[in-house]
Nucleic acid binder design. Structure first.
Lengths: 97, 97
DNA sequence: ATAATATTTAGCGAATCTGCTAATCGTCTC
DNA sequence: GAGACGATTAGCAGATTCGCTAAATATTAT
């Protein structure tokens, strides 16, 4: 990953994590085995389904979820390694000055 | 820290980190010894000073910077421990399901 | 084919964010 | 005190975000 790619990944991840619903989606998918359909995810939120769909799109764009079509369902799978960009950024603050 | 406080801290931190300029400010302050004046920080950005002032305000509101007035200067000091809220959140993804 | 199911896209309105310039405030110096 | 300095506040314009409802798409079942 080039520095520019790393920076872009960091920006995408940080932007995606800025909304509580999107953080919640990642946690839910993680604790339900790493993958869920759009319907299963949407059922766990109070907001309308299209709203959740858009959150899912943001997470896919950030590389945090991978989309797989299975029949008329769409499975969203967590890509937890994508969070590493943020962990590497946070690690700077553990380094000595 | 109560669960509600932890959640609020996480939201504030994630929101603050969403903008690249604010992430940059935190890094700069860290690597310049942990504290800098508003002017020193603003001088390192292309945007107008008031714009930087607002970013600083967001970071203070998130608890990531602490403000100290010294004469006509204002010193912003990094509160790196505040990033822990985010690290604890990220740690969930390292736990087994 | 038709209907039902799973999900997304389109598009609107309110709220928030981000940049700017101009004006203001408190402090230091002469 | 008068002005210079360090920094913030006020207020505006454009862009983005986020929720919604309604309409469309694609797949499965009858």
């Amino acid at each position: 990953m080039t520095p520019a790619e790393e920076l872009a990944a960091l920006q995408a991840v940080c932007g995606a994590l800025a909304h509580p619903a999107r953080r919640q989606i990642l946690l839910i998918v993680h604790f339900r085995g790493g993958a869920m359909t759009a319907g299963e995810i949407a059922a766990r939120f109070d907001c309308a389904w299209p709203t959740t769909t858009r959150h899912l799109r943001v997470l896919v764009a950030a590389g945090l979820l991978a989309l797989e079509r299975r029949g008329r369902e769409r499975r969203y799978a967590l890509v937890a390694e994508r969070l590493d960009a943020l962990e590497r950024w946070l690690a700077w603050f553990h380094r000595a000055i």
